[in-house]
Design a binder for these strands. Structure first.
Lengths: 200, 200
DNA sequence: AGATAGTTATGACAATTGTCATCTGCATAA
DNA sequence: TTATGCAGATGACAATTGTCATAACTATCT
């Protein structure tokens, strides 16, 4: 019997997947979580064989959870299940050594089979992701990401400077540099592009 | 036997819901669509009793489909099933006289029951939506929406002016007016707020 | 005809943004 | 020790953005 845990904030999908997987003879859903924090604590207490993690969840993302599972030496295998084929997400997941990265756009029917294959030691990656997407890595460094994120919340250069204790000019330099790297002609375009690639 | 059609672009959820509903004795999933266009044509040919429509789908949104169903005098009952509790969406759905507006954050278990209740003539609205959200109507007029949308794509005031054949100053007046109505302190904040409310 | 409202335009102003060259410390590698 | 590179900072400039007062031109209603 394969014991699995599902972490997904959208209740309808979580419930449907749990029901669907429980119909399989060899799979048992032992727990459900609606945010990353809950997922982490349930995984450590329940020690399921496999966990299905959404990425964009409240409190902690699925990627955060994955990285922390490694730190504490958990043996639970991780399958990321997300809407987003964003290069940044995929890259981070692969670096965290997940056993699977599936898209919510993929077929329902193969989910159970993917779980079984992961249990046998295979890596399950949605075919859309195997080619192309990986080589596009995030050109922004930590500061640029940080500053662009704040800008994306509508903060002005001045506000950002006082939040981060940097000078006004420095903030603008970082934004300018980020826009240059992204080949965007203004903040708004830059934010759109970075968000769309998962570079935040 | 209640004949239903599911229109939802996320394949995993669509498949899971179909499977789940097919398990009910009195419900039969007669069709599935992955975009609004397909939904519309399947509904007209299959004439299901109820259709479950996602809002944000390719080609046509679920709201577009609903409005067109009214125009052609379809008797299929509509249940909107969406992630978004955005006032703008909800308002438009109610005006189009949908029989149900459920959130994907709601419980899986009650979906089948909601469908049965809709068949009996009830209106099914997610409880989160009943209070508060309705009175917040879109303060932006058509021009303001149009211009803010273009701005959201990263266009400058100058570009927008030549796209819409308006003067540079006029475009900036509209943006200024929109930001004022939204109580936002710059474009980026205004865009975020408007998008979040479904006012686009 | 006069009042009213909606759409578009203009000009002026200040604030913010985007760009660039240059400069300072500081750490670290050769 | 010198060199190199990085994180920040500064100043200057032009372009863009946000705000406001005002006006012209419709169309509509009374």
């Amino acid at each position: 019997m394969i014991r699995i845990l599902i972490a997904e904030d959208q209740r309808m999908l979580r419930g449907a997947l749990a029901l669907l997987l429980d119909l399989e003879d060899d799979i048992e859903v032992v727990g459900q979580a609606c945010d990353g924090q809950e997922a982490l604590s349930l995984i450590t207490t329940l020690q399921p064989d496999v966990c299905l993690l959404d990425i964009e969840m409240p409190v902690k993302t699925g990627l955060d959870v994955t990285e922390q599972l490694i730190e504490i030496g958990s043996i639970t295998r991780v399958i990321i299940l997300t809407t987003f084929a964003r290069p940044g997400y995929f890259e981070r997941a692969i670096k965290a050594n997940v056993q699977g990265y599936l898209l919510k756009d993929g077929p329902t029917e193969q989910l159970a089979e993917s779980i079984r294959r992961v249990m046998k030691g295979h890596r399950e990656i949605s075919p859309e992701l195997i080619f192309g997407t990986f080589k596009e890595e995030n050109p922004l460094n930590a500061r640029e990401r940080e500053i662009l994120s704040l800008s994306a919340q509508g903060k002005s250069a001045n506000e950002i400077s006082s939040i981060l204790h940097l000078s006004y000019g420095t903030v603008r330099n970082y934004i300018s540099e980020a826009l240059n790297k992204l080949d965007a002609k203004n903040r708004i375009e830059g934010i759109r592009m970075a968000e769309q690639k998962g570079w935040l």
